[in-house]
Design a protein around this nucleic acid. Structure first.
Lengths: 143, 143
DNA sequence: TCTTGACCTCAAGTCGACTTGAAGTAGAAC
DNA sequence: GTTCTACTTCAAGTCGACTTGAGGTCAAGA
């Protein structure tokens, strides 16, 4: 019996036990059984949790991540989805790059007011015309 | 009287009128008056909205953004905060870059299961050891 | 045997940024 | 003068990912 106690998993994965219970309820992970009341987990859950964390970082929702596992627990990762997400990340990275450069410029710019600085104004214009996207912006009709 | 009607502002800025009311309530923007019931806005509000959108993209909260304007409406942008945010963006960009590359690799990888692919496993390990951060992760004790 | 402390369940709360709904109102077109 | 319509207010709802709280249970140590 090499199973791990929920406390052990929580500690090793760096997430609170409440999160593990929540993930279990969502069907993202499964416990192998109980010792008394306490959930026991197969050590493989750690890898799975890592995979979940990874998906979250990539911008997948928990529901999307849940669909990336087959009923028997094997990761079933759609290569096309991965590609699409990579493209999405790429766009986001480029946007953030522009933004970062502009912020750095604004921080160093000698113009008394940022609004008097051409670089800053160009950035504002880009933002105004939708050249820079807000990440979590709710787009009506999407989702 | 060159003021803009709320509908006009909403249209030009690409945000719903409800958002403008919400921003006004939050003190992020101000209307110049009313025509009947309807809010009127100075055209400068468009620039301000662009600035707000920009701040959101950079990852500032609305409350943080509100503090970036002086009571008279001039942007008062703390250069140190900008630098700090630029650094933060830089880290995030690098993380996302690693992630994007890994996703691309996984999408193209011939290994039957992603778990059998070294590159993918290395990524998981990085995620597991905290090498890759989830953006909106609530860190207990922060905020 | 008793106590302790870490787990359990289930419902409800939180956080940020808005959106939605109900009920009311005023300017403009007819 | 009436109707239409786009606005108004205010409270409440939504969304995702968890957290928190109250009240309960059980294995292990003293």
């Amino acid at each position: 019996m090499t199973d791990l106690d929920i406390a052990e998993v929580a500690h090793r994965a760096g997430v609170p036990a409440s999160t593990l219970r929540f993930y279990e309820e969502k069907g993202l992970i499964a416990s192998t059984g109980r010792r008394g009341l306490r959930r026991q987990y197969d050590p493989g859950v750690l890898e799975r949790l890592a995979l979940i964390a990874l998906g979250r970082t990539a911008g997948f929702s928990l529901d999307e991540i849940a669909q990336m596992f087959t009923p028997d627990g094997q990761p079933r990762i759609d290569r096309r989805k991965l590609s699409a997400k990579a493209d999405e990340l790429d766009r986001r990275i480029r946007e953030l790059g522009v933004l970062r450069d502009s912020l750095r410029h604004a921080a160093a710019c000698p113009a008394p007011s940022h609004l008097e600085c051409g670089t800053f104004r160009r950035l504002i214009d880009a933002a105004a015309t939708g050249g820079v996207a807000v990440p979590g912006r709710r787009v009506p009709g999407r989702r």
